[in-house]
């Protein structure tokens, strides 16, 4: 097997000191390979969000290493860390985090703007991403004028626009009704299947987790079990 695209070795993360010390992660080791879809499953407080933040390089582990494409990420700092995050990851959050007053297109091209892409390039790639999610007709609408499903599609377009290798989805269907949720799921797994984008879904929803290639169960800061989907 090739190198894992993203790997964690004996990750520990604790908050606070002394009496107030809280160990969110107590030694997690996992490897994720390119093109996989992986579900990180756990109840709230299990440490799954902390794990995602560490994997997405939003936070530094207390001990242990996170490797991206085989190299240690602890050496990444400042500008290079920001660039890596910008180019490698796409984020889909439960609560969308769209800027309500701005247009859908403006919201979608935010990662490109941060990357320093010129305004013409931004427009072009923004429309392309919206087209892939069949949302191009809403490009000029204000973000708060969209329905929940449309919002989540806009968020996926934003995650896609910079051609990331990995998409992190944190409870992507948590705020959607089951019909809309199913559509959003189909889109995410379609991207994973057709474009080989690695998908890491953080959820407590068993049905969503079932659709992933692999499920990693987290409880009290430890991996309790890992199971692969039975090959069809």
């Amino acid at each position: 097997m090739s190198h894992p695209i993203l790997a964690a070795y004996d990750l520990k993360k604790s908050y606070g000191r002394g009496q107030n010390r809280f160990d969110a992660l107590k030694g997690v080791t996992l490897e994720i390979f390119a093109g996989e879809s992986v579900a990180i499953v756990g109840k709230s407080g299990s440490g799954k969000s902390t794990l995602m933040h560490l994997l997405a390089l939003l936070d530094k582990p207390s001990t242990g290493t996170v490797q991206l494409g085989g190299s240690d990420t602890a050496t990444l700092r400042g500008k290079r860390l920001n660039e890596t995050r910008n180019k490698t990851f796409g984020f889909v959050f439960q609560q969308f985090f769209l800027t309500p007053g701005a247009s859908v297109l403006e919201n979608v091209v935010l990662p490109l703007k941060i990357a320093g892409v010129g305004s013409r390039g931004r427009k072009q790639r923004g429309h392309a991403a919206l087209e892939r999610l069949e949302l191009d007709d809403k490009a000029r609408s204000k973000a708060n004028a969209l329905s929940g499903g449309q919002k989540q599609r806009a968020v996926i377009a934003r995650a896609l626009v910079n051609d990331p290798r990995i998409i992190f989805a944190d409870e992507p269907t948590g705020n959607l009704d089951s019909a809309t949720g199913a559509i959003v799921e189909d889109i995410l797994f379609g991207l994973n299947r057709d474009q080989g984008i690695t998908l890491i879904i953080v959820t407590h929803d068993e049905d969503l987790a079932e659709r992933c290639d692999r499920r990693i169960y987290i409880r009290d800061g430890l991996v309790v079990s890992e199971e692969a989907r039975v090959a069809a």
Binding site: K79, E83, R85, N86, F93, P111
Partner: peptide, 16 residues
């Protein structure tokens, strides 16, 4: 707050 957090998560530097 959230917008700032999001921009930082997407790789926007503190200086910017």
């Amino acid at each position: 707050t959230r917008e700032i957090g999001l921009m930082k998560a997407m790789g926007m530097g503190a200086g910017r």
